[in-house]
Design a protein around this nucleic acid. Structure first.
Length: 622
DNA sequence: GCCGTTTTCGGCCCGACTGTTTTCAGTCG
């Protein structure tokens, strides 16, 4: 899906050949902007789509595209043909693109911002620019307020009001929702709709069902025999701020807190194609419909309609509509295995479903322990015992207590004395667990191997590359999680030296939140990712998929690439309070989106196997 | 602009809703 918010930011300027390579994100922004500007110019729609498609493919490419071009081995990227490849070459070697600059001279880049106004598309922008010289949001607001738009063809007083409302919306529109927040809102709405007359079931679809790391709009699908009733209930909910649109089978609203929610009605017994249609990404759906067309069928949310010899759907007496109750049947009709929602992004899942090679994704139930948790000894909220009891109640076989190390003063990092003291607390707790298990008083979900709290730490990788604890102290921990919180803006070489030092330490078992990003907050560390994966794989250091829904780090795509390099992963909650232990699920979601199978997840192992693996790191290093 | 175990040219996914259109274009997902 085209993300307007990212298309209007300008790529960072590159002045000389020694400047760093443009990132995939920079390249994607350039090609999205080209696509947008061509749209405004009124260029052939397929051409503009081609630029957007290529931009998305570049953004999702596992290799650093600009660097690969510069090194003379351009990768094959779907949607990038001769013309765009040539442009990539120019960007990689000079950091600029003459075509892009000509376009920016011809079409004011600020016009692209107008496309973000709800209800304003390329045709309207073109009209506004050509007929009224409107180039920016400010121009447009002034013109609408002054009533200077209503005499344009197709525009009225009503349109002016709609545009002003749209601009206001744009300016108070919240950033995309984090997963946890999106799910909480969706669950609340579904609870309010479930008892509307005729409602059989409700599911949330769209990017929330695919478990994308951030959610733009929420999509609710309602199976009901009384569409009118549920639509009425929906648009009248107390949390609704305004109704964007409403028809007999669908409605869209904006909530008081800014989120947009679409509701679609499904006829009972025909939910299959609806679920497929409203869950898959745009790209996934286009591929499915194209595959249907190849087989002589048109696919929409309603189901399949047979095509005639002219390529048009058969109508009248010849009409042939096939509907299905389940997604399995819809995919099956296309000779595809059912595809887990997390994979429906057109990143190879359709080919895999056709050849029976879909991955067997890791599941929350596979997780047997949590390797990254905090207590109130450093910057956590709850006591060690509360955290451990909560983990044990979740059916885990182990939890690693990883309070911060000494130099992270802001988080009350532990010094050697407190480490020793903490170790005695952990030992006492484990005595209690052992006694309770012997007496058969352990919680019912406790696995056969019992539950043990393991003693670890979150070891700071200092700005100068040294680790925060000496080797003798590190050797005493069961599991060591290393991470980098300070001096994040160092040049790549320096950051790589720090990360590499941690990966090569015989005592560091897990590299936590490797990119250091905070979604919507802090950017990634500037690392040579393929080199990080290679070193992690070589040393057998686990890479973390941090489950906090503000981190999700490694990201889905990085997790996938890491596994391709032979890395093992640890999916952790990084909980600082009891409730945050449930963040494990977001981490599992991210891993699933990254095609991660259970065999690549070390905390799906038993406690004994995990401890054996980390104990032998010194041997592996040779 | 991309792409091809039918095609190197001629296609390129589909439908609902909105507003002002006297029959449909624009926008959106």
């Amino acid at each position: 899906m085209l993300d307007r918010a990212t298309t209007t930011r300008h790529p960072r300027a590159v002045q000389d050949l020694d400047a760093p390579d443009l990132s995939n994100g920079d390249l994607a922004r350039i090609f999205h902007e080209i696509g947008d500007m061509l749209e405004v110019k009124g260029e052939l729609v397929f051409k503009t789509v081609a630029y957007h498609r290529a931009a998305d493919a570049i953004a999702h490419s596992p290799v650093e595209v600009a660097r690969a071009y510069r090194e003379g081995h351009p990768p094959r990227i779907p949607g990038v043909g001769a013309a765009i490849s040539k442009k990539l070459e120019e960007l990689a070697s000079t950091g600029r693109l003459a075509f892009h600059e000509r376009l920016r001279a011809e079409v004011p880049p600020s016009l692209v911002e107008l496309l973000a106004i709800p209800g304003v598309g390329p045709r309207t922008v073109k009209l506004l620019y050509e007929q009224r010289g409107i180039e920016s949001l400010d121009d447009l607001r002034r013109a609408a307020e002054a009533g200077h738009l209503r005499d344009l063809r197709g525009l009225t007083e009503h349109t002016e009001a709609a545009i002003l409302d749209g601009i206001a919306q744009l300016q108070r529109r919240q950033a995309r929702l984090h997963l946890g927040e999106a799910e909480r809102i969706a669950d609340g709405l579904m609870a309010e709709l479930l008892d509307a007359p005729g409602v059989a079931s409700i599911v949330s679809a769209g990017s929330l069902r695919r478990r994308r790391e951030t959610i733009g709009d929420l999509d609710l699908l309602v199976s009901t025999s009384d569409p009118q009733a549920v639509v009425r209930r929906f648009v009248g909910l107390a949390s609704v701020d305004g109704v964007i649109g409403s028809g007999p089978h669908k409605a869209a609203v904006r909530l008081v807190d800014g989120a947009q929610v679409d509701l679609m009605v499904m006829p009972p017994g025909e939910e299959g194609a609806y679920l497929v249609h409203f869950t898959g990404s745009k790209e996934h759906n286009v591929r499915l419909r194209s595959r249907a067309r190849d087989r002589g069928w048109s696919l929409s949310e309603k189901g399949f309609v047979r095509l005639g010899a002219d390529g048009e759907p058969l109508a009248g007496a010849d009409a042939d509509l096939r509907t299905f109750a389940t997604e399995q049947a819809v995919y099956g009709f296309l000779d595809l295995a059912w595809i887990p929602p997390e994979l429906r992004e057109d990143r190879g899942e359709i080919e895999a479903a056709a050849t029976g090679t879909l991955p067997r994704l890791v599941d929350l139930a596979d997780v047997r322990g949590d390797c990254h948790t905090h207590s109130d000894w450093s910057d956590g909220v709850h006591a060690i015992e509360q955290m451990a009891d909560a983990a044990r109640a979740r059916g885990y076989g182990y939890q690693v207590l990883t309070d911060h190390s000494v130099s992270l003063g802001i988080a009350h990092g532990l010094d050697a004395d407190r480490v020793a003291l903490q170790r005695s607390v952990v030992a006492a707790l484990n005595d209690r667990f052992a006694r309770e298990e012997d007496a058969g008083r352990a919680p019912g979900a406790t696995p056969p191997e019992g539950f043990r709290l393991l003693h670890g730490c979150e070891l700071e990788i200092r700005a100068d590359g040294r680790l925060d604890f000496p080797d003798e102290l590190l050797a005493g921990f069961d599991v060591v999680v290393a991470s980098l919180h300070v001096s994040r803006r160092q040049p790549r070489e320096q950051l790589m030296a720090r990360v590499t030092a941690a990966l090569r330490s015989p005592h560091v078992d897990i590299l936590a939140h490797p990119s250091g990003r905070v979604i919507g907050g802090r950017d990634d560390l500037d690392l040579d990712w393929d080199a990080v994966y290679a070193e992690a794989a070589r040393t057998g250091t686990l890479l973390e998929v941090n489950g906090s829904d503000h981190r999700l780090d490694l990201s889905d795509e990085r997790a996938r690439r890491a596994v391709e390099h032979g890395c093992l992963l640890a999916i952790d909650s990084d909980a600082h309070r009891v409730e945050e232990l449930d963040a494990m699920r977001w981490g599992v979601d991210a891993a699933r989106r990254g095609w991660v199978e259970v065999r690549s997840v070390a905390n799906a192992w038993s406690r004994a196997r995990l401890l054996d693996w980390v104990a032998r790191k010194g041997d592996r290093l040779g």
